[in-house]
Design a protein around this nucleic acid. Structure first.
Lengths: 120, 120
DNA sequence: CTATTGCACTATGAAATACATAGTGATAGG
DNA sequence: CCTATCACTATGTATTTCATAGTGCAATAG
């Protein structure tokens, strides 16, 4: 029954949610509109993107700024808590660039065996 | 048609997959058996856990060691590429401990407003 | 002796999630 | 006039994860 709350467990729960890290990565460069963000993220359908953004706004890592209703112009921007995810993104980037490469056969992701299992 | 491969995009694809970060966190402490891992991760059903482990073994971040068939004893251990995710976990821990706390009303995750929007 | 527990999983069908695709209303550009 | 763009929503389908039960056998408890 002990419900001891673990902030790290909760943080993982947020960050593993599909598209969240992609959205953060896109918004770390600059605030973007919905369609710009959609293109930058690549491959997320609008219903899912909309839902995920709502959740991130509710949580407080993203802010939604309506600059004009007509012509429509909305900007999504990281809050300070969102910008603080830069450290996580940095670590992911380091890991990805070191260990991940395209599979020579099918182009899917696979590990760089040189780095993954360095010869002794 | 340009299929330019981005290792960071691919890394995010791996890490956002449900339970992956939880599994990595559990295995960073020590290698674990299937049921131990299941308990440590908490709440992942065995079919999903099995599938996720297979994928992680195929990718090369986890190694599956069968120590005895009977009585059954299998250990899951991070490979060097898996251990290298320590940096990512560290960053997630820092962020989580700084920004996430339980919601006073319902116990869900929410942001620590002190840290999220520091007074100017 | 028998009963229970624990090991590493697999099987099944139901529930939740994400998907592709189409469409909204108005306006700016060719 | 025709098309594209903005920010999304709607619909039905496909994928993913879920809860739950069960496998065979050894070791432990009673």
């Amino acid at each position: 029954m002990s419900d001891d709350f673990c902030p790290v467990h909760a943080a993982i729960g947020v960050l593993q949610h599909k598209w969240v890290l992609h959205i953060v990565r896109a918004l770390l460069n600059e605030p973007l509109g919905f369609n710009e963000l959609s293109r930058s993220v690549g491959g997320c359908n609008p219903a899912t993107l909309s839902q995920r953004l709502d959740e991130m706004v509710t949580l407080g890592v993203v802010a939604r700024e309506v600059h004009s209703v007509f012509p429509p112009r909305t900007l999504y921007r990281l809050t300070p808590a969102g910008v603080a995810l830069q450290g996580v993104m940095q670590a992911v980037e380091n890991w990805g660039r070191t260990y991940i490469q395209p599979d020579p056969t099918d182009g899917h992701a696979c590990l760089n065996q040189q780095e993954a299992n360095p010869a002794v």
